[in-house]
């Protein structure tokens, strides 16, 4: 019997773990960054939809760990390892971090795409997880789908077509 590919939807400031033959999917990434961390031989993967670069930016006591690059990546790793993933086998693919609107104002919040990408790369580096592929920056929205079976990340855009990394 063929297993059915389930699409696991990851919302904004959300995070999900899945195994083969499922597909992890998040839609409409703008300045947000989609981070996939996976253990390919074990067919185990997690995806986070990161919204802001740094958990110290928060202004409230309650912290949604899935919203920030630093805490979301830590959480992804913890969850994957709790499910049996091997730390040394973990690899990452990232996409997103666009600048959707060009503004002359130098407001920091308007550069959040670039800052998200920097923060994600730094955190992954600190955690010794190699980034095997990335498609970041630009000024277009992206929808991404990660096939846990093949380890490929499919990226769909409105104006720039589709690609696979």
């Amino acid at each position: 019997m063929n297993a059915v590919n389930q699409v696991v939807k990851v919302g904004i400031a959300d995070l999900k773990i899945a195994t083969t033959p499922d597909i992890l999917r998040t839609t409409g990434l703008g300045s947000c960054v989609g981070v996939v961390i996976y253990d390919l031989p074990l067919k185990l993967a997690g995806m986070a939809h990161v919204m802001l670069p740094d958990s110290t930016l928060t202004r409230t006591g309650e912290l949604n760990k899935m919203k920030y690059a630093d805490t979301a990546i830590d959480m992804l790793m913890e969850k994957l390892i709790a499910q049996g993933a091997r730390k040394f086998a973990l690899k990452a693919k990232i996409a997103g971090g666009a600048q959707m609107f060009s503004f002359s104002t130098s407001s920091d919040m308007m550069r959040v795409g670039t800052r998200n990408v920097e923060a994600v790369i730094t955190r992954l580096k600190d955690s010794r997880i190699p980034i095997v592929a990335q498609e970041v920056g630009g000024n277009n929205g992206r929808t991404i789908e990660f096939s846990i079976d093949t380890g490929k990340l499919k990226i769909r855009t409105v104006n720039m077509g589709e690609s696979e990394i």
Partner: peptide
């Protein structure tokens, strides 16, 4: 701009998402 709603609208959520 013309693009996916998620990519556009989330831009306006950044400040309050903190």
């Amino acid at each position: 701009t013309m693009d996916m709603a998620g990519a556009i609208i989330s831009e306006g959520l950044m400040e309050l998402s903190r």
